[in-house]
Design a protein around this nucleic acid. Sequence first.
DNA 1: ATTACTTTGTGTAAAACTTACACACTGTTT
DNA 2: AAACAGTGTGTAAGTTTTACACAAAGTAAT
Lengths: 256, 256
Amino acid sequence: MSNNFYETEYETILTNNGSSKHVKTLKIIQSEVQSINRVALSVDCVIFGFDENKLKVLLIRSDLKKYQSKWSLLGDLVNPEEDIEEAAYRILLDRTGMDDLYLEQVHAFGHINRHPGGRVVTIAYYSLINVQHHKLKKLDNELHWHDVAEVKDLAFDHQEIFETCYKRLQKRVQEHPLGFSLLPNKFSLRELQNLYEAILGIKLDRRNFRKKFFAMDFLVDVGEIETNVPHRPGKLYQFDYDKYERMKKKWSGIDF
Amino acid sequence: MSNNFYETEYETILTNNGSSKHVKTLKIIQSEVQSINRVALSVDCVIFGFDENKLKVLLIRSDLKKYQSKWSLLGDLVNPEEDIEEAAYRILLDRTGMDDLYLEQVHAFGHINRHPGGRVVTIAYYSLINVQHHKLKKLDNELHWHDVAEVKDLAFDHQEIFETCYKRLQKRVQEHPLGFSLLPNKFSLRELQNLYEAILGIKLDRRNFRKKFFAMDFLVDVGEIETNVPHRPGKLYQFDYDKYERMKKKWSGIDF
DNA sequence: ATTACTTTGTGTAAAACTTACACACTGTTT
DNA sequence: AAACAGTGTGTAAGTTTTACACAAAGTAAT
């Protein structure tokens, strides 16, 4: 047995210490890699947004007959000369017109029959965007935001992919202050808390929530208050990304 | 724009509400998936073990000329009719003779030029095994255990893959009591602590470590003590996997 | 302009957890 | 019998988490 994509043809070379050794020729490796053992590779993106105090996810209508009435994630095949991550960003740009976002790889899904067109392995990514800042410019295939609580029965294995990404998001949001990308530049603590409650699916104590965030010391009071609220307006804050970047090393998460 | 691997040929169908709609035919999808957009897919396994109070990783010598003197991870191409995970288990079985282990997918690596033979996307898995319980039966290409602290300059992008998996292991071992698979069935608390210190790369307070583990209440005193130690022997314990499984729901990790 | 209403903003005491730390015990070696 | 090496145990101080209540600020209705 051998490795790194084996073949039976070898070339003899001299090693550092003067003895000889058999190695596989590059030509052989290339033919091996380029021949039978190939699969189609795709990327699927789970794009989360936040609107009206609900966590949303961007879905598109499948136009495959088999899944004619079902929703699906934003996905496409990876080009042979394209990095996976590059493909993920391309797909998001194509489908939503956005290029300024956070994107994290989550998992590869590769069950043999997950796609009716043949073997397609897909790499799932998720992203968080601010719904208000990124109005959708393209609405092909009924692209739009769905409440995450109501996502069910997606096409292909997209339900599983969605759920895996949602769990990952819930975990990440406790490890890093990602959520700020979903809020307006200036936000009230109530908005921030609504966001965390929506993502985590739990209620949090208001006083303790405030205490925790102030203790982190990444919020900057911008000296303004909410307008157009039918009650006492709350102060507005900004997130100090620079300070967060500087503190990142010693950061190990938020505990709720 | 369309989705789920687009084509320009459509078939007209009737929808539920009686209107008509154009959908892509399955035949077209299949030809799309099977034609140009395919890549070679491989799996690489990072197998951790523990021996002589050191964390080890299993490496094999590459037999590609380009990497003639370098170590590499255990990897192989995924067969077109094989699940990715299935491939990972197959590779481990082939290379080490083992089939009773934990295996977790970590990340997909897909830079275009990561393999000299052409485009190869690889999915990385890691695993933990008990070195003593699994003597290596095959030693092709100098397969053997390397101290993780001394792993460097691996073939391909395997250094990056290794480091990603190592970080993942360090994180996971604080979230779940995985480490027990690396110890003998009956172990002393000192052995357990050595293991955690080796994996995390830090020193821990002995009294607090013991307190923490006893508080979790997954250790069963088997009423035996160490033998052949040149000092007071420690008590031996077993890990109560059943109890852990039952408690798993409300489990959120070990904090050191 | 007064009142009712809604949500903001704040502090504290109790409980839980984390950390740092020292000494007697048990078996082995000399 | 003495030296050695590592086990086993408790506690006080500090920190973090939790639960909880009331006055203040603005809006809306009268």
